[in-house]
Each structure stands twice: as C-alpha cells, then as structure tokens.
C-alpha cells in the first residue's frame, strides 16, 4: 500500500515534468506541430538590412505570415540577401509587392513588412521580391538631423554662406 502511493506520486511527478515540457514547447517557444513543412521559400535583396536577424517575423498588414531564415551578404551584387519562409496558404503575394524592413517601436526588433502590389502574377516558391526598402538606421537619421541643425544655426548667426561650413 505504501509502495502504491510512492509509485502514484512518482508517476504524477513525471507527468508534471512532461506537461511542463509541452507547455514550454507550445506556449513559450511557439513550436507548432505542423508549421515546419507548410512553408515555401522566397528571397529579397536589400541595400542595408540594419540589425535584421534570422527568425525575425515577416508580416503583411501587421499579421505574421512567415519567418526570416537567413541573412547573407551577396558578394556579386554587394547587397544583403534575406531568405524567408512564408506560410503555404499565403500563396498570393503579387510580384510587385514591396518588402520593407521596419522596426517595432522606436527601439524594438526589426522585421520585414510586405506591402501588397497590384500585379496579377504571384511570387513563386524560390522566387524573389524585386522591390525592397532598406532599414531605417536611427543613427544615420540622427546624424543627418544634427548636421541640418548645425548648418541652419551657423547660417543664422553668420548671416550667409551656410553651405561652406559643414
């Protein structure tokens, strides 16, 4: 009888462990049982990907429709090649759609947003999205902004000739 309670509690312990693993898999790491094979691969070339990393999401109208698989540098064109896996049931992305690298919030993660084009042909598996828009690099923006401020400041004090002091 004593052994029975011991065995029951060990069994419950094991079940609790397996349940925790399942929850970690499904709820925390978002592993779904059938999403692995139901995707197709497309790619796009960007001038600058910023800090885009693999596993970043690919979204369309704000809904996640895929994942970035790899970000590599293309030696021939000096551009960044981004491969992405798109859900199989989203098979109607027009070929003239635009892939843009956008940021969630001011400091958030980078992801790819696809804006729909108007063509009747769709991007095929292994196909390419031609039209791309590079990442907005915050530092560059700040740099440009500062430069502008300095220029207009000195222009105001010196009266004229703001173009030659930068």
């Amino acid at each position: 009888m004593r052994m029975r309670t011991v065995e029951i509690s060990v069994g419950a312990f094991m079940l609790a462990g397996i349940l925790a693993l399942l929850l970690l898999a499904l709820k925390v790491s978002g592993l779904s049982l059938d999403s692995a094979r139901q995707t197709y691969r497309i790619y796009a070339m960007f001038d600058n990907v910023g800090s885009l990393s693999p596993r970043a999401k690919v979204s369309m109208s704000g809904v996640t429709i895929g994942r970035v698989v790899s970000v590599t540098f293309d030696k021939r064109t000096y551009m960044a090649r981004v491969d992405m896996d798109i859900d199989k049931n989203i098979d109607n992305i027009p070929v003239d759609s635009t892939a843009a690298i956008v940021t969630a919030g001011l400091l958030g993660e980078k992801f790819i947003g696809i804006s729909v084009g108007g063509e009747v042909d769709f991007v095929q598996p292994e196909g390419r999205i031609e039209d791309t828009q590079s990442a907005l690099i915050l530092e560059d923006l700040i740099g440009k902004f500062l430069l502008n401020t300095v220029n207009s400041d000195s222009g105001a004090t010196a009266g004229s000739g703001s173009a030659d002091n930068f």
Binding site: L21, L24, A25, V28, S29, G30
Partner: peptide
C-alpha cells in the same frame, strides 16, 4: 513576444 524570441531547440 515570448514566442517570437524563444527557440525550442536552441533555448529550451
């Protein structure tokens, strides 16, 4: 945000 960042194989 948790699902986006936690990978089953490499993290769990």
């Amino acid at each position: 945000s948790m699902k986006d960042s936690v990978d089953f194989v490499s993290d769990v």
